[in-house]
Amino acid sequence: MVRFKNRWLLVEFIPLDQTKPAPSRLDSKIIWAALRDSIQENFGDFGWGAVSHSLTVKYFSPTTNICIIRVAREQHRIARGGVTLIKAIDGVRILPFVIDLTGTIKHAQLSAIEHNRKTIARYRARAGTSSTYHDSYDQFLETSSREIEALRD
């Protein structure tokens, strides 16, 4: 029996237009469609044919704008190239930042949880609140950690 080996991309989508509100909420389907369009535009039908069977968006957090993408090990360079070449998603200009590329879902989960904690710490520092202050971000960290840990291959 052959095991399919995957690579996991942890990506943050940084919105460039902070003054203009997003026309719609991002979700996994919209990100997948934008990634498909980017790969087809930049790598053609060959590139899309290579990654289409294994490319999935497993997780997206609209609060921290991070996303976990799974792709087959042999085609991870095409997928990463497609991610970095995305200019806009659903009319909103974004800057994709690949945080981590891992070989297992467990390491992607750990990186995502750690990145969420760092992002929330930056939000709190910007707001001037102490680390002992309890707010809605505590609940977000708890629920997002549970969601990320529940992901399966």
Rank of each mutant, 00 (worst) to 15 (best):
Q40D: 05
E41I: 01
I89V: 15
H53N: 10
R77S: 02
R126W: 04
I105N: 04
L9S: 08
A72I: 02
R93L: 12
S131N: 10
V2E: 12
F46R: 13
F46V: 13
T64P: 06
W48E: 09
V2L: 10
T143C: 05
W32K: 15
S24A: 13
L151W: 09
E74V: 07
S38A: 14
D138G: 12
R70S: 11
P15E: 10
G44L: 09
E147T: 04
K58A: 12
A22V: 01
I78Y: 03
L101Y: 02
V11E: 07
F13G: 09
N116W: 03
A150W: 04
K118S: 12
A150R: 08
A108L: 10
P15D: 13
R25F: 06
E142R: 15
V92W: 02
R73T: 09
L85N: 10
G103Y: 02
K58V: 05
T143L: 14
I86N: 06
L16G: 07
L9T: 01
Q109H: 01
H53L: 07
V2A: 14
F46I: 11
A112N: 03
V11Y: 07
S136V: 12
Y123S: 00
R146S: 08
H115P: 00
P21G: 03
R3Y: 09
R7I: 01
G44D: 09
F140H: 15
W32P: 00
S52C: 13
E142N: 05
V71I: 08
S24F: 13
I69V: 15
T19W: 09
L85M: 15
T56K: 15
S130G: 14
E142S: 14
T63N: 10
K20R: 14
T64H: 11
T102W: 00
W8V: 04
D135E: 08
I94N: 07
I30W: 06
V83L: 07
R117L: 10
F60M: 10
A33E: 09
L95M: 12
A72W: 10
S24V: 14
E114G: 03
S111H: 12
R70T: 08
S28W: 00
I68E: 05
Y137L: 03
P62G: 11
A22N: 14
F60S: 00
T56R: 15
R70W: 02
T63G: 08
N42W: 04
R80N: 02
G91I: 01
A79Q: 01
K58Q: 14
Q109Y: 04
T104Y: 07
D135S: 13
H134L: 11
F60G: 00
T56E: 15
C67A: 06
S130D: 10
I86Q: 07
I31S: 02
L85P: 01
I148W: 12
R117T: 11
E147Q: 12
T19C: 03
L35I: 03
I120D: 04
T64A: 11
A50I: 00
Q75M: 07
R3G: 10
A50K: 13
V98W: 12
T84H: 07
W8H: 14
F43Q: 11
G81D: 06
T104I: 04
R80I: 02
A125D: 14
R77I: 01
L9D: 01
F13D: 01
R73C: 08
P15H: 12
I148L: 08
N116Y: 00
E149A: 08
H76L: 02
L16C: 14
T63I: 15
S24K: 15
R25A: 14
F13I: 10
D153A: 07
